[in-house]
């Protein structure tokens, strides 16, 4: 049986590459999209050699939402699974003062990803099949002083995914929201993260593959994050606003 193509948006990130490896190992053709696709040549060669699957590279700018419909047309086939791993942390301190930088973070984490996934979802619906994975963040569950610009954009993205899922609940288009918690990636390199709370990118990839095959709706990668976030979201605002976490 031939397997459906998997589109990965923001494919240069560590999580995206781990996901690409997992789906290639399962025999899925891959469509890897990134702002600089030439940076993915090595990965393409590697995946094709290891797993004998076709891999195509595509230029994709998440902020250039006007180009998104044309981008979908350039894909060799409408994917069966679309995974959005686009994201940009930015510097909170900068985001507080420089509104252009803040807007960039908001657009990269919310407007851009939502636009492309909405377009794909509509096509999936027209075809009558498709699965969408949005990698959002636990940071979107409650705004905190230390990264609320990024967090608010992720909150918007999480809500968008939830709405999309709701809209297609009775149709054959499924939406999975991933809230990974800490992940040992380029973004977090050199940070002294607590090992018990920090997943490897490969763990995230395995969790996504498994969750999608089971039709799950929202997942945390490490289960403990569910508990942590349950506590954080239940703290009364009067107390929360004075905390520094």
């Amino acid at each position: 049986m031939t397997k459906g193509p998997v589109l990965i948006l923001g494919a240069t990130s560590d999580m995206a590459q781990a996901v690409a490896r997992s789906y290639a190992a399962l025999g899925h053709p891959l469509q890897l999209a990134a702002r600089r696709p030439e940076a993915l040549e090595k990965l393409k060669a590697d995946l094709e050699l290891r797993h004998s699957v076709p891999v195509s590279l595509h230029a994709f700018d998440v902020l250039d939402t006007g180009s998104h419909p044309a981008f979908i047309e350039t894909l060799p086939a409408l994917p069966e699974i679309a995974i959005c791993a686009v994201g940009m942390m930015g510097e909170q301190v900068e985001n507080e003062q420089d509104m252009a930088a803040a807007a960039q973070v908001m657009r990269s984490n919310y407007e851009g990803p939502a636009t492309i996934l909405a377009l794909l979802a509509n096509r999936f619906d027209a075809r009558g099949s498709g699965q969408i994975v949005g990698i959002s963040s636990v940071a979107g569950l409650r705004g905190r002083a230390t990264n609320y610009v990024y967090g608010s954009a992720k909150a918007g993205f999480t809500a968008f995914l939830s709405g999309l899922r709701n809209r297609f609940a009775k149709r054959n288009v499924h939406v999975l929201t991933v809230l990974p918690g800490f992940v040992a990636t380029r973004m977090t390199e050199g940070m002294d993260l607590p090992p018990r709370l920090t997943a490897e990118p490969e763990e995230v990839a395995e969790a996504i593959v498994k969750a999608l095959s089971k039709g799950r709706n929202v997942i945390y990668v490490r289960k403990i994050w569910w508990l942590i976030m349950a506590i954080i979201t239940s703290i009364p605002e009067a107390i929360f606003k004075k905390l520094r976490i």
Binding site: T146, N147, T188
Partner: peptide, 15 residues
Amino acid sequence: MPCQTDPVWRYIPVM
């Protein structure tokens, strides 16, 4: 996703 600017998790060159 992790919070790079969290004061608890600053960059420390790890030995």
